[in-house]
Design a protein around this nucleic acid. Sequence first.
DNA 1: TTATAAGCGAGACGGTACGTCAGGTCTTCCG
DNA 2: CGGAAGACCTGACGTACCGTCTCGCTTATAA
Lengths: 172, 172, 172, 172
Amino acid sequence: MYDAVLVLAQTGSIRALTMEGIAARAGVSKQTLYSSWPSSGAVLFDALLAQSLDDDGVVALPDTGDLAADLFTIASAMIAEMSDPTQDTLLRAVTAQLQVDDALAAEYRERLFDIQQDAVAARLTTAGVDGADEIAELFFGPILHRWLLRTRPFDDAWVRRHVERVVRAAAP
Amino acid sequence: MYDAVLVLAQTGSIRALTMEGIAARAGVSKQTLYSSWPSSGAVLFDALLAQSLDDDGVVALPDTGDLAADLFTIASAMIAEMSDPTQDTLLRAVTAQLQVDDALAAEYRERLFDIQQDAVAARLTTAGVDGADEIAELFFGPILHRWLLRTRPFDDAWVRRHVERVVRAAAP
Amino acid sequence: MYDAVLVLAQTGSIRALTMEGIAARAGVSKQTLYSSWPSSGAVLFDALLAQSLDDDGVVALPDTGDLAADLFTIASAMIAEMSDPTQDTLLRAVTAQLQVDDALAAEYRERLFDIQQDAVAARLTTAGVDGADEIAELFFGPILHRWLLRTRPFDDAWVRRHVERVVRAAAP
Amino acid sequence: MYDAVLVLAQTGSIRALTMEGIAARAGVSKQTLYSSWPSSGAVLFDALLAQSLDDDGVVALPDTGDLAADLFTIASAMIAEMSDPTQDTLLRAVTAQLQVDDALAAEYRERLFDIQQDAVAARLTTAGVDGADEIAELFFGPILHRWLLRTRPFDDAWVRRHVERVVRAAAP
DNA sequence: TTATAAGCGAGACGGTACGTCAGGTCTTCCG
DNA sequence: CGGAAGACCTGACGTACCGTCTCGCTTATAA
């Protein structure tokens, strides 16, 4: 099932990611799809999740003792993921649905976003940062911003500067 | 025309914002709509723009000499706008379309986002900040993040802390 | 099982008489249903049969020596049965299926219709009528006609006149 | 549109006469079909009507002065029509729907059946028959009966005998 | 002033996808 | 090990919008 989603995300446009299309591609009836997911957004989201978990199974963040270096590593990994065309297509499709579907948005927060953010916040707390949640937002926000609005491509130098700024802002 | 969009954005759900619905509400044929805009996203976007411009006509940012205070004012204004239910509905509908429609995304950047960002960057430059564009991203990113993911409601205290962090990060 | 059919025929519309619905109502899996009957028509038909047989067990026609009186009795009984809402619903559902399903139609003739017709034909033969089968058709035809097309409600006076006409037509 | 229906009625089984199939065969969208007819039964019925009217445009019954001969002509024409495979398929499909759809049944009576019956009743009245409506029922009933239940094929000898019986029953 | 054209409303149309229902088949698992 | 349970594919249902199109009716300009 997820394979079908991924294939469509790779080959077709974002518009091809419909319940009808996924069912057809997976050789599965629509009914079967609807019995497992209530909407195309939910399927895409789970496919995304499955895809992410294939990689590492759990969100394990590095802790080398050097906060800036670790944040750079984390950001680079995120960006690499978001830059993969398949992931990008899926993420954008899901993001579009999140605007429209509150239930899906809540699930997204619970099962994907909060976990990431909490992990980063934990790493920040380890480094002695106060208000780690909000610093985590400061860390994620601009990355989301650049990706969502496609204002500028990501590059390592920017990531490095971004991390420096976050670290500086986190200082007491 | 824009009135129709706004009425639909107020009363109906986000799903009601279709070409068909707008045309019907405006007492206009679909053809007339299509002759002015290529997609529902474009209509919504222009309605959004028109709505914003009704308020002030131009993006005039304050410059009291106190950077933190000015950024707080700017952020508060943005947040107030994004918190208005009508604007919120419209913005989310447009944001959803931006993921799918590249042309619309480009127009959005040109006609709405860059202007805001450039204005803030200019204000930052005035305050002697280096790399103002990236600081502007740092400023907007977390606000977008909170709004888009609805992680937490906005409140003045958070805005104040956020601005402080941005200012601190901008320091040389 | 038949109970489920009858309950559905009473309470729901004719459209509720589906394999799925009957299985659900009977608390039985569809497979169980299919293992005993090949189609919804067959279930309905057997339910109909069971229902009829509950009443008298066998088609026993009166023979008082007065042909017209006996035909009137027979017709009245038929009409009473067809006027019962539950029976009516079932009969119409079966009749609809008969048009589509030849096997069912054959079974219907063998197990329900021919028996009735032969009984009437036998009664007619007893009364010295030639070509009793065709007279039986003359007897049943208009009743079926009125019921099927709902042209006019049944009433005793009409039945009486109808029987008279059949008797007159049967005369040598 | 009607062509599509007729082609399907000829080539496919009675089960192929669906809204989806008709639309596809006619090269028309389902919406267009639904904008003209509320159900497949209605389309089939109109196709049937159009087909009948193509032949003669109006129900013109013969009046040679010889009632039995005229009834024979009428019955033969009816039977010929009902024996045409295409017409037969259509008629059975419609008949099946009539059991389920009251609105369609009413329309059928008004636009097809009553007209036929009234014409025959008028011819009977011309011949000095009392209660012509009920005699018309006596005339149509057994024909419907034989066709509907497929008890026996039609043949001229039976039709002749049937007409004789009707005439005899109609005598005062 | 009248003819001509442009613009607009209305809405029909071929499509695609939606979400649902029922029909039959096939596997699985329990007694 | 045989039959009940339920998952599954299929196909049709009726609906909502999409983007294109044709039809008349205004209305405004030019002859």
